[in-house]
């Protein structure tokens, strides 16, 4: 077992940890945190795939590395949107919970 496989298993573990946190933590902020954990675990797996594809003097397969960069930025924008939504929910309603779902009806005139 070489070092790269360590990181691969680390990525797998991070995905599991993040999924656990998503299910169990009630605070939306921590769900967002767990989502980031899962995302970074997935990207780490991609990095492992890249490293395994090292060839011709390059340290790793550049395609997955490039896709990881794109992915990190996309994950950040998702986090920013989720946080903005959460803060706005808190400002508008005084509570920051995802459950129980408030019964949503179209407003009455």
């Amino acid at each position: 077992m070489n070092a790269v496989t360590f990181y691969g298993l680390c990525g797998a573990a991070l995905v599991g940890l993040g999924l656990y946190g998503l299910i169990v933590n009630p605070q939306p902020l921590r769900k967002i945190l767990s989502f980031n954990l899962v995302g970074s675990g997935v990207f780490l797996l991609f990095g492992v795939v890249a490293r395994r594809g090292a060839a011709l003097g390059m340290g790793g397969d550049p395609v997955p590395q490039a896709l990881v960069i794109t992915g990190i930025v996309v994950a950040f924008s998702a986090t920013a949107l989720a946080v903005a939504l959460l803060l706005r929910l808190y400002d508008a309603s005084g509570s920051a919970s995802l459950a129980p779902p408030q019964p949503v009806k179209p407003p009455e005139a």
């Binding site: 790269v4 990181y7 902020l29 967002i32 945190l33 980031n36 970074s40 990207f43 990095g47 492992v48 890249a50 490293r51 090292a54 340290g59 790793g60 590395q65 490039a66 990881v68 960069i69 990190i72 930025v73 994950a75 950040f76 986090t79 920013a80 946080v83």
Partner: peptide, 22 residues
């Protein structure tokens, strides 16, 4: 993992900006 570009991005955006946001 020899992915320096990714390392830079993760440090800047993943650790830095996401940290500030959260």
């Amino acid at each position: 993992l020899a992915a320096i570009d990714a390392a830079l991005t993760e440090a800047a955006i993943g650790g830095g900006l996401t940290g500030v946001l959260l």
